[in-house]
Design a protein around this nucleic acid. Sequence first.
DNA 1: TAGCATATACAATCTAATTGCAAATGCAAA
DNA 2: TTTGCATTTGCAATTAGATTGTATATGCTA
Lengths: 142, 142
Amino acid sequence: MNARSDIKEIKNAIRAVGLRATPARVATLRLLRQATSPMTHGEVAAELDENGVDKATAFRNLNDMADAGLLRRAELGDHLYRFEELRDGEGEHDLHPHFLCVDCGSVTCLEEVKLTVGSRKASEQVGEVSEILLRGRCNNCQ
Amino acid sequence: MNARSDIKEIKNAIRAVGLRATPARVATLRLLRQATSPMTHGEVAAELDENGVDKATAFRNLNDMADAGLLRRAELGDHLYRFEELRDGEGEHDLHPHFLCVDCGSVTCLEEVKLTVGSRKASEQVGEVSEILLRGRCNNCQ
DNA sequence: TAGCATATACAATCTAATTGCAAATGCAAA
DNA sequence: TTTGCATTTGCAATTAGATTGTATATGCTA
Ligand SMILES: [Mn+2]
Ligand SMILES: [Mn+2]
Ligand SMILES: [Zn+2]
Ligand SMILES: [Zn+2]
């Protein structure tokens, strides 16, 4: 509810995956929880810079938390990494798709998007699909 | 049929989009026509390097031919650009999806993959989808 | 609260991609 | 065929995102 208990919860989440709950990591996860779409390393690093956190530290923390299974590191086809917290119970599989606007770079999480049965069969002949990405132009950019 | 007439045809294709048919460009398009999947800038540049073509030239040519509508510059979510010749009549829209193996980086062109009707509706609320990308692990990498 | 593995700051490094510019060249017009 | 000139090229420098090395600082457990 309040900021104090939020931070408690954030520290717990970080420790639960075997990492130390440092100020930089708490600030990172708090940022990502406030965000409505995945944030780039640059965006996260810029925010944490105001707290005196180095960008190498910011990036290492994002990668480490992703490796630990707390975050998802998404590559959306614009040569930037983006990070979002994994929903409770969302594993490496059943990751939700994203939409990236190639004009403005905005990202939308798409919970319900799926392939047709035929498409799923066709793609499974090639390999095991773990991620679906849509690209195009968002409504603001039409 | 033979190499001679192939090269004629390649030169024609390059000139048809308003560009000069230089040796570097002919070699580039010939490479892409032989390839079975889109090639990265690095792959193209490495081949052309043997002909004494500079990588900046290779990249400029790939970008210029893509801007001219002769090639497609695809971003498949691994921070590399890949290039493939546009099929005859394949415009900016109706581009076929790709599958990228996150392990070995291999790419497969998927002609038939589509979204379910519901998914298409859901994604159109966000914007106009022009590209679909699947990521996962190919059969070789399971 | 002491000990130590983990995490941090700061600087250096890596790779893909791009740019500036003078010299070279494709090609259309003469 | 030759000429004129815009386009293209080679080469070197640069940019930007991401990563790494390392000495110091700190979270956390005992
Ligand atoms: Mn998301
Ligand atoms: Mn393709
Ligand atoms: Zn947009
Ligand atoms: Zn593979």
